[in-house]
Design a binder for these strands. Structure first.
Lengths: 335, 335
DNA sequence: AAAACCAACGACAACGTTGTAGCAAATAAA
DNA sequence: TTTATTTGCTACAACGTTGTCGTTGGTTTT
């Protein structure tokens, strides 16, 4: 069922029908109603690719993220989708699986009008950003969230990672920790660095000498991470506090503590960035820095649609910073 | 950068260029190489909507699911995306938020060639299926997974819900439970009924009289659910076992037990369908029936692409059933 | 050497829309 | 009454591809 057939059924030219459907002032009310009724009767729907081709707009955005099985990215998609649905846009999902090559391949797919805009959070691996620069050169509206590329000229939605790095570290200090380890991930990621800088700042503020042996550079390899953490716990001056920059490292720490029969929070206190819904039900319940993931999605999508809808507003380079919240639970409780 | 410009740069007709790019036998190897080189140099990418319009294929599939912040649907998307990426397809995500009206609106969007196929899991609310019938009539390849529509003629990928209903119930019985409550959700859903039938069958097998007061019809309203569960625990013959058909009801049970100072598993044992990654770290660790979510996504997508790629194979109405696994943990431990 | 054939390319008509330009008839202004 | 203007509709040319059908020259067959 296309315009031509619909027009034939109505004995009208297909341009008249097209205009009637889009409520053009050139068409009489009587004809419009006739067309609308027939369109409904025959269940006519415009062909999206024909329309997109003609209008040079796809009414689609892409969301490029590392993974979807994740308590942070899940709600973000939710937020993006809620705005997209309001605006009548469609949402394509692309997963990089933390692989820069995949990220590059995906950005290539998005260069030729498939989408009107892109929301993106970088993979852990991404060190080089020429593929992102290419997107900017093609003038495709682009908004980064959380894991941003600082050198790319695009709006960014982040959380107050530096401050939260401070807050989390101070929370451990206030609860009696003196040898606080920082479990870092992906040195390329801006969030990782900001969180670590907050950690270092807090130590400085409280006159604790930073110890490079307490800063672990973890990777995507979980087994390796566990070995590193185990080594950390076995060194002479075992840490009494763990600040994990991501959830999975905190869970790894839980596992290692169980293995080594260390008790949380008596022997070690643990805090991490996490949006886990069941943090309160862990054993022990996990103290977290929780990011406003849903709001980040909505905020980012709102900015993206501003860019998409009135192009040329490149001055709209707003960097939005939302606040995360520290939720203290038993894993950091003073004994 | 389009074909016309590329052709001009090469001093060739654009049909020649088009054929060269698609490796047609009509074009000499020398020309092909020249075209390929120039295309790379000028970073030419085919316009997807023009190509789709011409070929009447969108190279895109839709995934329609209730929600994305979910340890089941997350891995499913992962599985689907992995197959889609292999096949060079794009993935559109649509969330129904368990709302039948949204589900209907979404299916309408998918009627006119936007996608070549659909993977779908129904919303809790979906009782009527005429909107799904419409998809079938439009001959859009459609595969259901997990929450299927039994009366729609389409391939379905499910898990052995009935058997697992039996297994979970027997697990509770074996650990000493005699008054087992079933926390059901959404009576419209096939999975809910199958799980409950398994529960009833297990009771029968072990000569336990089913008690309607122990079967709770929960809904999307969390506060209401909690009230129901609280009432359940306050009745004269308090249940000593809880079989929750979904994870969130198990967590609600955990909360109510904490409120009423009931201890799991001493006072009540709890088991539920769940793909939570941290089930082992809950307090107490949660016994679960875990579905092979990622595999379901891959399996479903594989079937979908068979349908998409050779249309007319409607005999391909395979109903695939994958097995879930019962993982016993402390929440059902015999005291 | 004429007939048949093939290899390599170009012209062109779709695919289904949309917006601009055109064209009658009806209405308003001169 | 003639000339503008408006109203309501149609014709048509894009948008960027792709596949069919021609059209060349050159090579092989008989």
């Amino acid at each position: 069922m296309n315009l031509k057939e619909l027009a034939k059924a109505l004995n009208l030219s297909f341009s008249t029908v097209s205009k009637a459907l889009r409520d053009s002032h050139e068409i009489s009310v009587a004809t419009k109603n006739r067309v609308l009724a027939k369109a409904k009767e025959l269940n006519y729907q415009v062909n999206p690719q024909a329309s997109s081709l003609r209008k040079q707009k796809s009414k689609t955005i892409a969301v490029v993220i590392p993974e979807v099985v994740n308590d942070f990215f899940g709600p973000v998609i939710n937020g993006i989708e809620s705005i997209a649905q309001e605006k009548g846009y469609h949402v394509l999902i692309y997963l990089t699986h933390e692989d820069m090559q995949k990220e590059i391949a995906i950005t290539k797919l998005l260069q030729n009008g498939r989408v009107d805009g892109i929301m993106m959070s970088l993979s852990e691996e991404t060190s080089d950003t020429t593929h992102l620069q290419a997107l900017r050169e093609n003038e495709i509206p682009l908004v980064f969230f959380d894991r941003i590329a600082e050198d790319i000229d695009a709006p960014k939605v982040t959380t107050d990672d530096y401050n939260c790095g401070i807050k989390a570290t101070e929370h451990l200090i206030e609860n009696g920790c003196t040898r606080i380890a920082f479990l870092s991930i992906a040195p390329n990621l801006s969030i990782s660095n900001k969180r670590m800088n907050g950690y270092l700042e807090a130590l400085k503020k409280h006159n604790i000498k930073p110890d490079n042996g307490l800063i672990l550079s973890c990777t995507g390899d979980e087994a390796k991470n566990k070995t590193l953490i185990k080594q950390l716990f076995k060194r002479k001056n075992r840490p009494d506090g763990i600040f994990a920059s991501v959830e999975k490292l905190a869970i790894a720490a839980y596992e290692i503590c169980a293995e080594l029969t260390l008790t949380i929070p008596q022997d070690v206190k643990v805090i991490c960035f996490s949006n886990m819904q069941t943090a309160a039900w862990l054993n022990p319940s996990l103290s977290t820095i929780t990011q406003p993931a849903y709001e980040m999605g909505r905020e980012g999508a709102s900015i993206l649609f501003k860019l998409v809808e009135k192009k040329g507003h490149h001055f709209l380079l707003e960097n939005t910073v939302l606040n995360s919240a520290l939720v203290a639970r038993n894993s950091t409780k003073r004994s």
